[in-house]
Structures are given as structure tokens and as C-alpha cells.
């Protein structure tokens, strides 16, 4: 009786096999982007970073007081505490802390990005060469990298910056700090890139590319680099936060950024002696510094998860 009820549905016309996802096919990078857009950590980190970059580029959007104009400071108002006119209080010179915190973002972001880019390019480039050519090229570059690697970062930077001296630091601005940090940090990137290149180099597609007539340069740039660069991007993003806190640390110690340039590290150093009577002087620059480092670390974490799900 049930025979009559189970009428076979008309056979479906055989469909052409469809790719898994409609639209643009997924490469590693578009896959990673797809993951990132759905990652809350990435979105929070990206929004914060966007605001901070905006702050660094156009501080006047966030504060109507120009912190670099000494006329805005009034010694009579020194260490006033939080008031309606001065949301974050005023510092030892009677300058508005809020506007100084906003203007201080530029140095931090600049040092972070420049150092990350320079270490990424130098360390990544040398790592590519070392891993690809191997033998004496690798031995030479790796040993040089290890020498730099052996120097404790903060001590090394202190040494370099005190040798360079305060006058030169003032003349070259953020570049002195950037170069000191980059000099000590590139070996880390070299190591990561080198390891990643060596594993990519032994992949069948590299041998296959060679067997199909590709030359060394083409193999290096087209077949190895795109497959080996993900860990370097991840490390560089994570390092950005580290460089920002290192800059603050060095400025705090008096060897980094020099006044009158505004830096969070310098502001924290100025506030240190009066912490008990005027805690807001230290609190707000430290808070912004923490938020900035956190934002870049969140971004780096999310990028790592997207590019290498195995590390999660």
C-alpha cells in the first residue's frame, strides 16, 4: 500500500560539479580574510588600531588644544587634577594632559610601524636569502644574526642610544630609536623566515617548478616567498606592540625620544616623582600605552589564527 505513496521524484538533471564556495575561489589569503572578518578579537583590535592611527595622523580631530604650542601651558595650572577644562588633568608645566596623550600617539605608532616594517623587510629578505641559498651564505648570515640575538634587547638599545647621544637623538627624532630597535630585532625575523623558507624549499612544487624550467630568481620570488611569508607577517604584527612598549621604556629611561617631542614614555617619566599626589598624570599615558600594545597584540593574534590555524 505504501508503494503507491512513494512516488519516485523525477530524476534531478545532472548538475555540473560546482566549486565548494560560489564566487571567487579561496586562496590562502582570501581564506584568511574570510576568517578575520568573523573574528571578534580582530574586529576589536582593528577598530582600536584604526582610531590610534587616526589619532597619530590627525591629532587635532581628537583635541582642539595643540599640545606642541607652549602657549597652551600655564605654569600656574600645574598638576591641577581632573577638571572640566582638563579632562586628564595637567602636568608639571601646566600643560593639558589629554591633548598631550593624543599627540603622543604619533611617536608610538610611528616607532612601532617603522621598526616592524624595517625588521620585516631586512630580516625577511636576509632570511629568504639565507634559507634559499644555504651553505656559506646561510652560515654567514645566521652567525651574524646570532651575535645580535645574544645581546639583551633593552640593554643593547640603552647602549646604542647612549653612544649616539642626546643631541643626535634630538636631531634625528624617532629614527634613532627605530634604528636601535631594528638593529636588535631583525635576527628574530631572519630566523623565522629562514626556517619557513627551508621548509618551503623542499616542497615538491619547488622541485617541480625547477623541473619545468623556472630559474632561481623566479623560484625564490614566485614559489618560495608567497608560501613562506605568513609567519613573518604574524611575527611582525605581534612585534609592533613590543616595539611600541620598548620605545616607551627607552623614553622613560631618558635615552629614547627627547623632549620637546611628546612621547608616552616621557610623560610617564615626568609623572613618576609625583605619582602619589597626582596619579592621573601617570595613569592616562600608561592607559593609552596599554591599550595601544593590546590592540596590536590582538591584531597579531587574529592574523596568526587566520594564517596558521594549526597554531591555535
Amino acid at each position: 500500500m505504501s508503494n503507491e505513496m512513494t512516488v519516485a521524484p523525477p530524476p534531478q538533471p545532472a548538475e555540473a560539479p560546482q566549486p565548494a564556495k560560489p564566487g571567487k575561489p579561496a586562496s590562502l589569503w582570501s581564506d584568511a580574510w574570510y576568517d578575520l572578518r568573523r573574528n571578534k578579537v580582530f574586529i576589536i583590535g582593528a577598530v582600536l588600531v584604526f582610531l590610534l592611527v587616526l589619532m597619530a595622523l590627525f591629532p587635532s580631530l581628537f583635541s582642539h588644544v595643540d599640545a606642541y604650542n607652549p602657549a597652551t601651558c600655564n605654569l600656574a595650572n600645574a598638576r591641577q587634577g581632573v577638571t572640566g577644562a582638563h579632562w586628564f588633568g595637567t602636568d608639571n608645566q601646566g600643560c593639558d594632559t589629554y591633548s598631550r596623550v593624543i599627540y603622543g600617539a604619533r611617536v608610538s605608532i610611528l616607532v612601532g610601524i617603522l621598526t616592524a616594517v624595517i625588521t620585516g623587510v631586512v630580516g625577511g629578505g636576509l632570511g629568504l636569502v639565507a634559507g634559499f641559498y644555504g651553505r656559506w651564505v646561510d652560515i654567514l648570515l645566521s652567525r651574524v644574526a646570532e651575535i645580535f640575538f645574544a645581546i639583551p634587547a633593552i640593554l643593547g638599545a640603552l647602549l646604542i642610544l647612549s653612544v649616539v647621544g642626546r643631541d643626535n637623538s634630538q636631531k634625528w627624532g624617532v629614527w634613532v630609536v627605530v634604528m636601535a630597535l631594528a638593529l636588535l630585532a631583525w635576527p628574530l625575523v631572519l630566523r623565522i623566515m629562514r626556517a619557513s623558507v627551508i621548509s618551503a624549499k623542499n616542497q615538491d612544487y619547488v622541485v617541480a617548478a625547477r623541473a619545468l624550467g623556472a630559474g632561481s630568481g623566479r623560484i625564490m620570488m614566485r614559489h618560495i616567498l608567497p608560501n613562506a611569508i605568513a609567519p613573518v607577517i604574524v611575527t611582525s604584527t605581534l612585534n609592533l606592540g613590543v616595539f611600541i612598549s620598548a620605545e616607551a621604556g627607552l623614553s622613560f629611561l631618558g635615552v629614547g625620544i627627547q623632549a620637546p617631542t611628546i612621547s608616552w614614555g616621557l610623560m610617564i617619566a615626568d609623572a613618576r616623582a609625583r605619582f602619589l599626589s597626582a596619579p592621573e598624570m601617570l595613569l592616562f599615558p600608561a592607559l593609552l600605552l596599554s591599550i595601544t600594545v593590546l590592540a596590536f597584540v590582538m591584531l597579531g593574534d587574529a592574523v596568526r589564527d587566520a594564517l596558521d590555524p594549526k597554531l591555535r
Binding site: Q203, A208, A209, A211, G213
Partner: peptide, 25 residues
């Protein structure tokens, strides 16, 4: 030698998935 490799004598590998570059179409 490199003028011959790939152009006059070419090779097919065992495992095509690993012999193709994963990041390009």
C-alpha cells in the same frame, strides 16, 4: 642546461597536489 629543462625535456611528478604551488590559481 636550463634551456633544455622544462622546454625540451619535462617532467610530471607523483603527487600533483604537492607539486602545484598552493598560492596561485
Amino acid at each position: 642546461r636550463s634551456q633544455i629543462r622544462g622546454q625540451r625535456i619535462a617532467m610530471v611528478f607523483q603527487d600533483a597536489l604537492s607539486a602545484l604551488n598552493p598560492v596561485f590559481t
